[in-house]
Amino acid sequence: MMEKMIFGRFLPGDSPIHKLDPRSKLIFVFAFIVIVFLANNVVTYAMLLTFTLLIVLVSRIRLYFLINGLKPVLFLMVFTFLIHIFMTKGGAEVFHWKSITIYEDGIRQGIFISTRFLVLVFMTSILTLTTSPISITDGIEVLLNPLKKIKVPVHELALMMSISLRFIPTLMDETDKIMKAQMARGSDLSSGPIGERIKAVVPLLVPLFVSAFKRAEDLATAMEVRGYRGGEGRTRYRQLKWDMSDTFALVLLAVMAIILFYYRG
């Protein structure tokens, strides 16, 4: 069941994208999200799409994973597509039936918005598929470091995040085990009226919380014994390395932005 989840999963590899520094990838994706909004006509949207597909190609990620990443937002895509088709007025009439009229502009807008969704989902998926969660955490920690000056506990947040990531598989296994144990005792999570089903979650949640707290306690003890007492005076084992290729990636994006700006209507 849970092992089928693809979204947010990391696929190890050695493509040029995999090798980029997480910081450059994070900056790249956030800048890209802004740049996407520059596009406003056929030429610029076509450029965006081509640019994205080129990056997919370089990342050597199978389309399967990207398409799967689309699934959760597919409904949203179709929904906004339809809204634009029916609601946008302007340009030539393409279709008319009773009170429903579809205009050329509506179709164009619908396609534009869907493309926007597509490139955004592809780009963020490429980030998570090519960067291990822990590298993303490292990247975020370093990028947010300046916030320490205004007393944001950046180190603690990053540590929390990396420990959560570390425990996700453990807790997923645990959930599966407890669920099976309760099913073996006749608990039924998949049928019956909704009230019954909500009740059936209690035997799952209580043991899960109990065990999560027990783990947290054990972990805290283990960390204390191993000398953890906050971020002060700590050194870092995980080092990030900014290469020429990272600079190049960001320059490429800047060039793309300039071109988009030039061709937008």
Partner: peptide, 29 residues
């Protein structure tokens, strides 16, 4: 070393975990 192998593994990978106590004690990279 404690009883439950899962509940004392802090690092994301083996080498990160081994380095954890070193980081805490401020050992240079």
């Amino acid at each position: 070393v404690f009883q439950n192998p899962d509940n004392q593994f802090v690092g994301a990978t083996v080498q990160d975990d081994v380095a954890f106590a070193l980081e805490n004690n401020g050992i240079p990279f």
